[in-house]
Design a protein around this nucleic acid. Structure first.
Lengths: 138, 138
DNA sequence: TATAAAACCTATCAATATTATAGGGAATTA
DNA sequence: TAATTCCCTATAATATTGATAGGTTTTATA
């Protein structure tokens, strides 16, 4: 299951994409529109900015805005940033890999094989779908 | 990520499958073989029994044993039993469905669509792979 | 039939992760 | 210079997961 953090991130990104014309958008505005705690959302937007998805402007008239095109924002990247690994086991994670404690030969482990397959199919979708794709039908 | 509970369950099931000949197997034996806390494993085996995967025998010479063929134990069933939903969002979960709080029309939500797709691909694998499959290469 | 072995069951504790809040700092605008 | 808004870090609250504890019931067997 995706965490609230990730869900909020998606909502915020969608909101920002749909209000690109208006320039910088206040945290406040997004948090009210989606009923998210202002401060919690603030932390999330901060992470998204540090990761290069958003830009920000301080002071009056400030706020957040997308600095990547919605087409260029892969869903997989957002999930990894806020939720961590997409894989079901550390030993098949591409970005958060950790060796299996039990297996000597991971490549010969049946569980590893299946979970690697799940990971591949999941990534095939999440890497090829972008923010733009989910907005289309929103 | 799968919980330890689920991982332990898989290890235990694999162990039981590989020691089917010996009849009932002690919790102790499995917990030692896999370095799992005896009591924690006990709870897990209990759940597996209640769910119909295992049988048990009390008293001396007792223990746990598989009552389903490894071929008939879908990985998806084990994960759902111990970890809950496989889907990434409640609104696309088949077994633990909960309506989306924001969407009026889930069918028209882009996030819902993508996550349903992920769920389908994941299940396509986890429902078609059984305990027997992961033992083969173990 | 007494004893020991083993699962059964439920409660509770501990550790960790998630969600949320708090509050002063720094930059920007007017 | 004052108001606004994001920046940053710490901490508190809550939920989930992982682990432990201890008595109960059943069963084999000596």
């Amino acid at each position: 299951m995706l965490s609230k953090k990730t869900k909020y991130a998606f909502h915020a990104l969608i909101y920002l994409a749909q209000h690109q014309a208006q320039g910088a958008v206040l945290i406040q505005e997004i948090s009210e529109a989606h009923q998210i705690s202002h401060k919690f959302l603030e932390n999330i937007l901060l992470e998204l900015r540090k990761a290069g998805f958003l830009g920000s402007k301080k002071g009056k008239g400030g706020g957040y805005y997308l600095i990547k095109k919605p087409e260029e924002i892969q869903l997989s990247k957002i999930i990894r940033l806020l939720d961590g690994p997409i894989a079901l086991l550390p030993c098949v994670s591409l970005n958060y890999y950790e060796p299996c404690e039990e297996c000597k030969e991971e490549t010969q482990c049946g569980l590893n094989k299946v979970m690697a397959q799940v990971r591949d199919e999941t990534l095939k979708i999440l890497e090829n779908k972008s923010l733009a794709d989910i907005i289309e039908a929103y």
